[in-house]
Amino acid sequence: MSLARVLLLTTLAMLAFAANSLLCRLALRETGIDAASFTTIRLASGALMLWLVVRLRGGSAHTGGSADHPPHGSWASALALFAYAAAFSFAYRTLPAGAGALLLFGAVQATMIGYGLWRGERLGARQSAGMALAAAGLVGLLLPGLSAPPLQGAVLMLASGVAWGVYSLRGRGVANPAASTAGNFLRAVPFALALSLAQLSSASVDAAGAAGAAYAVASGALASGLGYALWYGALPLLRATSAATVQLSVPVLAALGAAAFLGEAITLRLMLASLAVLGGIALVIRSPRRASR
């Protein structure tokens, strides 16, 4: 595959990931859809799109399994995926898109780095400084003040990031990541339906809710389903550090998109927090970690 094609696939995937924040925030701020319905529609449409992608590639995303055809995905991973998607939607009822994407990304990376430390990896001086800088950026973003994001939404988004980090850790090393993701999306739909039933009293079925459903379909089928397919196409051709570093662009793209399309302000607090969090994480993932003895 040519370098130009790898760059194109990577760029489109990052734009798709950033679009998830914009679509969710737009739907919950401007339309009548509720967070539970958005989650269900997003996961169901994502499952359908990923199933189609896998089928077009000649594979299968089935979840049943047999001696000849082992199942793709798992219920534990599906639960983590559902927890990410549900907390993500409920957080964006109050969070600005840019701040939400930064909190999400910071929590994902913190979870994965923390897992490495728990497994015995050790950080050098530069990496330790990066961790401290990233933590200070998140604390600075959440400190009380006029431009601080709502606390409840921030906590939900941090929980969403932890869930996505767990999901990512569980998916490392799978033989067929696209089929595995499709299987996990399919398994996550029943959890989402149960949440929608529990939130039935707040469900929206009016015209504004229908517009929100269209945003949810776009988030699930395009930003999630096709976004993951594009990312998995580029991922084998990227070094691990390059793959991790390029994802630093997602919160920046989300903040710029929120300013351009949602009219959200890029505050000084958000800019400083972004520099600290993303710069600190870059220091960690760009330097080799030391294994424990």
Rank of each mutant, 00 (worst) to 15 (best):
Thr10Gly: 14
Leu12Gly: 04
Leu12Thr: 03
Ala19Gly: 15
Arg25Asn: 06
Leu26Pro: 00
Gly32His: 07
Arg42Glu: 10
Gly46Asn: 10
Gly46Gln: 11
Leu52Ser: 02
Arg57Asp: 14
Gly64Pro: 00
Pro70Ala: 10
Gly73Val: 03
Ala76Gln: 10
Ala80His: 03
Phe82Met: 05
Tyr84Phe: 15
Ala85Tyr: 04
Ala87Cys: 15
Phe88Pro: 01
Thr94Glu: 15
Pro96Ala: 08
Ala97Val: 13
Phe105Ser: 01
Ala110Pro: 05
Ala110Phe: 15
Ile113Ala: 14
Gly114Lys: 09
Trp118Thr: 03
Gly120Asp: 10
Leu123Pro: 07
Arg126Thr: 13
Arg126Asp: 05
Gly130Cys: 08
Gly130Gln: 01
Gly130Ser: 07
Pro149Arg: 01
Pro150Val: 09
Leu151Met: 13
Gly153Ala: 10
Ser160Arg: 03
Gly165Val: 02
Gly165Tyr: 12
Val166Ala: 14
Val166Glu: 12
Gly171Phe: 10
Arg172Trp: 05
Ala179Ile: 03
Ser180Gly: 08
Thr181Leu: 15
Asn184Lys: 01
Pro190Asn: 02
Leu193Ala: 12
Ala194Trp: 12
Leu197Thr: 03
Ser201Gly: 08
Ser202Ile: 07
Val205Glu: 07
Ala210His: 08
Tyr215Pro: 01
Ala216Ile: 09
Ala218Asn: 02
Thr241Val: 14
Ala243Gly: 14
Ala244Met: 11
Thr245Cys: 12
Ser249Glu: 01
Val250Arg: 02
Leu253Gln: 04
Leu253Val: 07
Leu253Pro: 08
Ile281Asp: 03
Ile285Cys: 00
Pro288Gly: 01
